[in-house]
Lab assay of single mutants.
Amino acid sequence: TFELKGKVGKVVKIAEDHYLVESEGDKWIAYSDEKLSLGDRVMVVDVDGLKLKVKRIP
């Protein structure tokens, strides 16, 4: 299986209740415990079905 946990991506869209993150050339629906901005670099900390939980990284 394709393992996304630990992968790095970038926030490419902000929606009302989720983010769109591009990682490894694909776009994924993501959510975070912190507020993210367009262009933020993020790391995948968990995968919930087809949704990614991400956190901001420097």
Rank of each mutant, 00 (worst) to 15 (best):
residue 23 S to W: 01
residue 25 G to E: 05
residue 56 R to A: 10
residue 8 V to S: 04
residue 42 V to M: 02
residue 21 V to T: 04
residue 5 K to D: 15
residue 9 G to W: 02
residue 53 K to C: 11
residue 16 E to Q: 10
residue 53 K to P: 00
residue 48 D to G: 03
residue 12 V to D: 05
residue 13 K to A: 09
residue 51 K to S: 13
residue 51 K to Y: 12
residue 1 T to I: 15
residue 18 H to F: 10
residue 29 I to T: 09
residue 22 E to G: 04
residue 29 I to S: 07
residue 44 V to I: 14
residue 33 D to I: 10
residue 36 L to M: 07
residue 57 I to W: 12
residue 33 D to S: 12
residue 26 D to I: 12
residue 17 D to T: 11
residue 32 S to Q: 02
residue 21 V to A: 05
residue 37 S to L: 11
residue 43 M to T: 11
residue 12 V to W: 04
residue 53 K to V: 03
residue 37 S to A: 13
residue 21 V to Q: 01
residue 21 V to D: 01
residue 2 F to G: 15
residue 57 I to G: 04
residue 38 L to S: 09
residue 29 I to C: 13
residue 20 L to M: 08
residue 41 R to F: 13
residue 37 S to P: 03
residue 57 I to M: 07
residue 19 Y to I: 08
residue 4 L to F: 03
residue 10 K to W: 10
residue 6 G to D: 06
residue 41 R to G: 13
residue 5 K to Q: 14
residue 9 G to F: 07
residue 3 E to W: 02
residue 33 D to C: 13
residue 21 V to K: 01
residue 37 S to F: 11
residue 30 A to G: 06
residue 39 G to V: 04
residue 49 G to F: 08
residue 21 V to S: 02
residue 58 P to R: 04
residue 33 D to M: 11
residue 10 K to S: 10
residue 32 S to M: 07
residue 14 I to N: 08
residue 28 W to G: 02
residue 43 M to D: 05
residue 1 T to P: 15
residue 49 G to P: 04
residue 16 E to N: 08
residue 11 V to N: 00
residue 25 G to Q: 05
residue 28 W to N: 02
residue 56 R to D: 03
residue 37 S to I: 11
residue 41 R to N: 13
residue 47 V to I: 07
residue 11 V to Q: 00
residue 3 E to Y: 02
residue 40 D to I: 06
residue 37 S to Y: 12
residue 20 L to P: 00
residue 56 R to L: 14
residue 25 G to I: 03
residue 15 A to Y: 07
residue 9 G to R: 00
residue 13 K to S: 11
residue 29 I to W: 13
residue 33 D to W: 10
residue 25 G to N: 05
residue 20 L to V: 08
residue 7 K to Y: 04
residue 30 A to M: 13
residue 45 V to P: 01
residue 53 K to H: 14
residue 35 K to R: 08
residue 1 T to M: 15
residue 22 E to D: 04
residue 7 K to W: 04
residue 7 K to G: 04
residue 26 D to A: 13
residue 26 D to K: 08
residue 7 K to T: 13
residue 13 K to R: 09
residue 22 E to Y: 11
residue 12 V to T: 09
residue 33 D to G: 09
residue 43 M to R: 02
residue 41 R to P: 12
residue 50 L to M: 12
residue 1 T to C: 15
residue 28 W to D: 01
residue 19 Y to N: 03
residue 39 G to M: 09
residue 10 K to R: 11
residue 48 D to K: 04
residue 31 Y to K: 12
residue 31 Y to N: 13
residue 38 L to D: 07
residue 29 I to V: 10
residue 42 V to R: 00
residue 48 D to M: 08
residue 34 E to I: 05
residue 43 M to V: 14
residue 44 V to E: 02
residue 55 K to N: 13
residue 24 E to C: 12
residue 13 K to F: 07
residue 37 S to N: 08
residue 50 L to R: 06
residue 22 E to S: 06
residue 14 I to A: 11
residue 17 D to G: 08
residue 25 G to T: 04
residue 34 E to F: 04
residue 53 K to R: 12
residue 56 R to Q: 09
residue 22 E to W: 13
residue 31 Y to P: 00
residue 4 L to R: 02
residue 35 K to M: 07
residue 58 P to N: 05
residue 27 K to S: 09
residue 49 G to Q: 06
residue 38 L to E: 13
residue 11 V to M: 03
residue 17 D to V: 08
residue 10 K to D: 08
residue 54 V to M: 02
residue 38 L to I: 09
residue 7 K to V: 06
residue 47 V to S: 03
residue 44 V to C: 12
residue 6 G to E: 03
residue 47 V to G: 03
residue 34 E to S: 07
residue 53 K to E: 14
